[in-house]
Structure formats: C-alpha cells, structure tokens
C-alpha cells in the first residue's frame, strides 16, 4: 500500500484495525515471552546436544509421514463428504471432527484400545503379522494422523463444496471418467484448499503431544518427539524446555512460510 502511495480502498476502519492488532498481540506476546526467557548464554551448547536433533528429526519425519497419511485418506474422505451424496452426511461430518474436541490423551487411549497389543484390531495385527504399533515411530505417525486429520478433511471439504461441480461435468462430457476427472480437474481446482489443509495438518501433527505420548509412549530416538521432550524437560529444567520450544517454533515457521510461498504462490 505504501509503495503505491495511495490506497483505493481508503483507510482501514478503526473498529476492525484495533481488534485485529489486539488479536495479533495476543498471539505474539507469549512467543515474545519465550524469547525473553530463553537462556541465550547457554543456548548454543544446549542446542547442539544430540538429543535435540534426534527429537527434532523424529518430529519432522513423523509429522510429514502423518500428513502424507492424512492426505492419502483425508482427501478421499473429504470428497465423499462433499460429493458422495451420503445419507446422514452431517452426522458423519460431526464424527470426523471428534478428534478436534476429544482431549488428545483420550484419543491416545482410544487408539490403544483399538490398535494396541490387546486392542480390537491390534491383537490380530500382533498375532497374524507380528505388527505392534505402540512404542514405535509408526505409532507416533498413527497418533499424530488421528489428531491432525480433521484439519485436512474440513479444509478440503470446504474447498470442494466451494468448487463449481460443473467443471467436473465438463470433464465428463470430454470423456474423462470420475477418477481422471478427480485427478485432472477437481484436485487442481481445490489445490489452495488442499495446501491450506495440509499446512494445518502438518502443524498440528508437529505439535502433537497427548495422543502421541499415550499411544506411542516415550523413548528417545524412537518415539520422543519435540513436544514430548519439551514436556519432560519442563519437569526438571524449564530452560531446556524453552530452548526446545524455540527450535520447534523456528523450524515450523521456516517450513510453513517457505512452503506456502512456493505452493500457493505458484498457483496464483
């Protein structure tokens, strides 16, 4: 705006500007608190301990894998909700959002009851295939995906419902089957929604704590992600917890900002 000197839309109304700035401050001030309280003098040595990098790497790998899992299952689910013409769709949608409301720890217990060693499905996985999810990185991925998937489904479904279905009809008249239509027409047209959902999903998975520690447990290098490391550090050394949080924050901000720029910037 300042570059053009004059704005065609006039001045921003104060009724909007004031709460907007307050809102921004509300979100940013706690982060500033973290920055101020950070033990800057001992930061480098704390930062370059092997544990931090181990936890960070595990966090990034698991959150990314969980996001991939969510995309794989969540986009079709969103499509079913938006276009499937299912009876009782609003009820199904409500169930999809359950993990948003459920305390993550409860979600973790629920996952244990189903996928644990004695769980409804888990006991068969264990006896037939020798697969046991708890206490493994795969378990972390499952827990994170469970909690993060609603963010993706809701975003993608919203985008699908806003997209004009007549483009899909046009594709059909050109000889495209439903799968081809979905891949070549529907998906590109909702790409911004998918990207937004993916970003939310990834961010949620990265910060996941409750379901992860309950379902996958906590063991360094296998299931200790950054949030778990932060929590346990808080028990003994809050300074370390602050450092870990800052690392997590920095990495997620850098990743999200650069991805957004690349994906959405390229589409516009």
């Amino acid at each position: 705006m300042s570059r053009r000197g004059r704005s065609t839309s006039g001045r921003l109304p104060l009724v909007l500007l004031l709460p907007a700035l307050l809102g921004l401050a509300f979100l940013l001030v706690p982060l500033v608190g973290l920055l101020i309280k950070a033990p800057w003098s001992t930061l480098p040595e704390r930062l370059f301990s092997a544990d931090v990098w181990q936890a960070l790497r595990l966090s990034l790998v698991c959150a990314t894998a969980a996001t991939a899992l969510c995309l794989l299952l969540g986009v079709p689910l969103a499509w079913l909700l938006a276009r499937g013409g299912l009876p009782g769709r609003s009820v199904i949608r409500a169930f999809v959002t359950v993990p948003l409301v459920l305390p993550p720890v409860v979600g973790g217990v629920a996952l244990l009851l189903v996928l644990g060693r004695r769980g409804l499905v888990g006991q068969h996985l264990d006896t037939w295939f020798g697969i046991s999810l708890p206490f493994t990185p795969a378990g972390v991925v499952v827990a994170e995906a469970f909690v993060a998937m609603p963010f993706l489904v809701i975003s993608v479904e919203g985008a699908l419902r806003a997209a004009d279905p007549r483009y899909e009809e046009a594709a059909a008249t050109l000889g495209a089957g439903r799968w081809l239509t979905f891949r070549r027409v529907t998906l590109p047209s909702i790409a911004p929604g998918v990207v937004a959902g993916t970003v939310l999903c990834w961010a949620r998975a990265l910060g996941e704590f409750g379901a992860t520690i309950t379902f996958a447990g906590n063991f360094p290098g296998r299931t200790t992600t950054m949030p778990l490391a932060v929590y346990l550090a808080l028990e003994t050394d809050p300074d370390v917890a602050v450092v870990l949080s800052l690392v997590l924050l920095l990495v997620s901000v850098v990743v999200l900002a650069s991805l957004r720029e690349r994906w959405i910037g390229g589409l516009r």
Partner: peptide
Amino acid sequence: VVFQDYLLFNH
C-alpha cells in the same frame, strides 16, 4: 458440449 459459460479449465 459447449457450455453457456464455456467452463474452460483455468489451471
């Protein structure tokens, strides 16, 4: 089919 508003794929 030529649709009224053409429905060309913008992507």
